[in-house]
């Protein structure tokens, strides 16, 4: 502690950021919780309904469960890229001798493009008429039968809206994991190799345990960011066709700003927060244990 500090100086530095944070983040969470017990369209009087919104959400709303399932699928596909591909790449990069800096820069590039632009891009990539990139590639390799309008086929649309989300941040997570791998003491890996361990064994028993703390952080970041994914499905399909690519976030948004059902939308918001907290608890619980398996 700074010897010359005074109570006033602490307040001068702490209050402005704390107040803004309370108004923009903390109060809205509380307010959502409050609103979730009411029925309100924003115009007429608010009507207290107790737990009705929660009962409706958990027992009577098929769209909600559909959206929840979709959100998990969306999460799985983005984690495949953001953790799986990113970890593989980070490891491969340690064996590359030249051009590492260029590679890192190029991997990060998609992260700086706006989701609206990514939406435009993937609309073209997936399009059927005129033939988009994916269908062209399929035709080129003789798999014409698989060509389809990826965004209007109910069986493929969820995967189609999830891939761009995974793709755009793969480089970011790769970079973080790569930095963690660089911090693994080279003697350790060297010693394991001299004892005849294969590259996989070195990774499994030396490298991975060493980067576990960073891996936990990365997993938490990737999971919570994917659970709040919104822009790309909203822009590409608006949750359609039907509810085939509806996520909890897009469903909440439409409930609030299309159906102006603020109470029920807040109930879904509260659920999204709970879901994120549960995901973090689960990740920490699963990964912290020493002998825990590789996720």
């Amino acid at each position: 502690m700074l010897p010359s500090r005074s109570r006033t100086s602490v307040l001068v530095f702490l209050l402005p950021p704390l107040l803004l944070y309370l108004v923009a983040v903390v109060a809205p969470v509380g307010q959502s919780l409050f609103l979730s017990f009411f029925r309100w369209d924003g115009i007429t009087d608010m009507q207290f309904v107790g737990l009705d919104n929660y009962t409706r959400m958990l027992t009577g709303d098929d769209v909600f469960w559909r959206a929840f399932g979709n959100a998990l699928g969306y999460l799985a596909i983005s984690l495949f890229f953001q953790l799986g591909v990113a970890l593989l790449l980070a490891n491969l990069l340690t064996y590359v001798r030249r051009g590492k800096e260029v590679v890192k820069t190029l991997y990060l590039l998609p992260a700086i493009v706006s989701t609206v632009a990514i939406g435009f891009l993937f609309q073209r990539v997936y399009s059927f008429e005129p033939t988009g990139f994916v269908n062209q590639v399929l035709q080129a390799v003789g798999l014409d039968g698989l060509a389809r309008p990826w965004l209007s086929d109910v069986n493929t649309v969820l995967a189609a809206v999830s891939v761009p989300e995974g793709w755009r941040f793969t480089g970011l997570y790769m970079l973080i994991l790569y930095a963690a791998i660089l911090a693994v003491p080279a003697e350790l890996e060297e010693a394991a190799k001299l004892d005849g361990a294969s590259a996989w064994k070195v990774f499994r028993h030396v490298r991975f345990p060493y980067i576990r703390p960073v891996w936990i952080t990365t997993t938490i970041m990737a999971a919570t960011y994917s659970l709040r994914g919104f822009d790309i499905p909203y822009l590409l399909t608006n949750g359609g066709p039907g509810q085939a690519s509806e996520l909890l976030t897009t469903y909440m948004y439409k409930t609030a700003f299309t159906s102006t059902d603020f109470g029920y939308a807040s109930t879904i918001s509260v659920f999204i927060v709970v879901e994120c907290v549960a995901a973090v608890a689960l990740i920490v619980g699963l990964l912290r244990r020493r002998g825990g398996v590789l996720l």
Partner: peptide, 22 residues
């Protein structure tokens, strides 16, 4: 106070939309 700030990392932005709009 630090913990209060850090919790915000996992709060999804969508939760603020309805309250802030109101």
């Amino acid at each position: 106070v630090l913990a209060l700030f850090l919790v915000g990392i996992i709060v999804p932005v969508q939760v603020a939309l309805v309250p802030l709009f109101i």
